[in-house]
């Protein structure tokens, strides 16, 4: 019953994403074709072709219907800059982004939750002050600036552009090492900023639990301090923290866009940058729908995971 509700809610959200993607690019004051081809030599024929592609000559509900049905078929239109189907371009760039975002998220969640727990448990200790201070500062740092700084400071130690060198031997090990080498700086950048948020979330979540009476019960039973923390406090505090981590997945997405831009990492983020400098509306629309859709799905997963972890929430 609840599971059906959750799935239904996610489905509604996905439709809302599609609607949003449609209307966001129809609020353009003036002719989108003109602004899209601004500063480029275009013939009247090309403009007419674009207009037909957008379907701007047809009434709005017809436009939406054809957009929506093609979306269901996985057709996101054709990119203006790449002159290829948007879905194809996006699929190509998915791998590198998953690698970068995946690596960074795993490290950031692990590190962030661990540091947050430590800091909260010894509240106002030197460790807590240092961790909180660093986290607050990192939270204030724009991701792209941190990337640029790292690049400048490390010099030639790490490659700073792209995902692999052209002259690397084609065998798997050399290729993997090369990608790993390229991955170092972008992941550090992404981890630093995202991790700061997780530290603060985990810390405040555990602080909320610190006064819970069941911790007094655990102490009265004769449990060691670290057992009280591991067995009783953390399992409770981690639940809201995980939900928040997933809720703020948009933060990771935002970080990925600027990080990939700075390091020319050939993923969706860099594609975003290319699309907006165009501007390539079909590509942007496709990217918006895909990322927003992914976030909605991530949230559904977080909800389900929460249901599995927290006995108070019954999902099925």
């Amino acid at each position: 019953m609840r599971l059906a509700g959750r799935l239904g809610g996610a489905a509604v959200s996905l439709v809302m994403v599609a609607v949003l993607g449609f209307f966001l690019f129809r609020v353009v004051p003036g002719d989108p074709v003109v602004s899209m081809t601004r500063g480029r030599p275009t013939t009247a024929a090309m403009q007419a072709e674009l207009r037909a592609q957008f379907g701007l000559d047809r009434p709005l509900h017809e436009q939406f219907w054809s957009y929506f049905t093609s979306l269901l078929r996985g057709d996101l239109g054709t990119s203006f800059t790449f002159r290829r189907p948007v879905a194809e371009v996006i699929a190509e760039r998915l791998g590198p982004t998953l690698l970068l975002v995946g690596t960074a998220t795993v490290i950031a969640v692990g590190l962030g939750l661990w540091l947050g727990v430590r800091a909260a448990w010894r509240r106002d200790s030197a460790f807590d002050r240092a961790t909180t201070g660093v986290s607050l500062t990192l939270w204030a740092v724009p991701t792209f600036w941190l990337g640029m700084l790292l690049m400048m400071v490390t010099g030639d130690l790490f490659p700073s552009r792209g995902m692999r060198d052209t002259d690397t031997a084609p065998d798997f090990v050399s290729q993997a090492l090369d990608v790993g080498h390229h991955l170092v700086l972008p992941s550090i950048t992404l981890v630093a900023v995202v991790c700061a948020e997780y530290v603060l979330v985990m810390r405040s979540s555990l602080l909320e639990e610190m006064h819970a009476p069941y911790l007094v019960t655990a102490r009265a039973k004769g449990l060691r301090d670290d057992l009280v923390r591991r067995r009783h406090a953390v399992p409770n505090a981690v639940l809201p923290a995980i939900t928040l981590v997933f809720l703020r997945f948009g933060l990771v997405v935002a970080g990925a866009i600027t990080t990939e831009t700075v390091f020319s990492w050939p993923g969706l983020g860099l594609l975003f940058y290319d699309a907006l400098t165009g501007p390539d509306y079909f590509l942007l629309q496709g990217l918006l729908v895909v990322t927003a859709g992914a976030v909605v799905v991530m949230n559904l997963l977080a909800d389900l995971l929460h249901g599995v972890l927290d006995p108070r929430v019954k999902v099925v």
Binding site: Y214, T217, H232, P235, N236, L309, D310, P311
Partner: peptide, 11 residues
């Protein structure tokens, strides 16, 4: 207040 003195997420 047994509600709060028992850990809510353990059997």
């Amino acid at each position: 207040g047994a509600m709060h003195s028992l850990n809510p997420v353990r059997r």
